[in-house]
């Protein structure tokens, strides 16, 4: 992105309404009953702070919730991610995480990521990649803890 018009379009893609809507009214934000695993991640540089709790039953995510504070990209990712992982196995989540990373590298939206495809616009803002990755890291830690039980 070099021209001002490109940059402005990039910004519009980054802050599209779907993302801001999740920031303003996050889903699955709060405590989770009977969690089987939980994990927190922080970015000390910007103060973003997210914790994910999962309840895994029969090898699949039965419910996932998050708590935390941070920017719209982090919050929207967390909110959408909690939706996406419902009913998935830990292995399936790993595949999705790789696809998400690939999307951040390419900027090409990925339909298999559901609503999270809206975050393809983050690709153009390398300084913000870590914001979108933070909830994934927390989720991965929560699933790891759940597996260890």
């Amino acid at each position: 992105m070099s021209s001002p018009a490109d940059q402005s379009a990039g910004l519009a893609a980054l802050y599209q309404e779907r993302i801001l809507e999740h920031y303003r009214r996050p889903r699955h934000k709060g405590a989770l009953d009977r969690a089987t695993g939980s994990h927190g991640e922080k970015n000390p540089l910007c103060g973003d702070d997210v914790a994910v709790a999962v309840r895994v039953e029969g090898g699949r995510v039965d419910a996932a919730c998050y708590t935390g504070t941070g920017c719209s990209i982090m919050q929207a990712t967390a909110s959408m991610l909690m939706d996406l992982v419902h009913g998935r196995t830990a292995e399936e989540v790993e595949v999705l995480a790789r696809r998400f990373d690939e999307m951040l590298a390419s900027g090409e939206s990925d339909a298999s990521l559901g609503e999270l495809g809206a975050l393809a616009g983050v690709a153009a803002f390398p300084a913000r990649h870590k914001c979108a990755r933070l909830p994934w890291k927390a989720l991965s830690g929560a699933l790891e803890q759940s597996r260890g039980r």
């Binding site: 519009a12 893609a13 599209q16 309404e17 975050l119 616009g121």
Partner: peptide
């Protein structure tokens, strides 16, 4: 207040 729908990436 800004129209963004025309440049949706997703």
């Amino acid at each position: 207040a800004l129209e963004t729908s025309d440049v949706l990436a997703g």
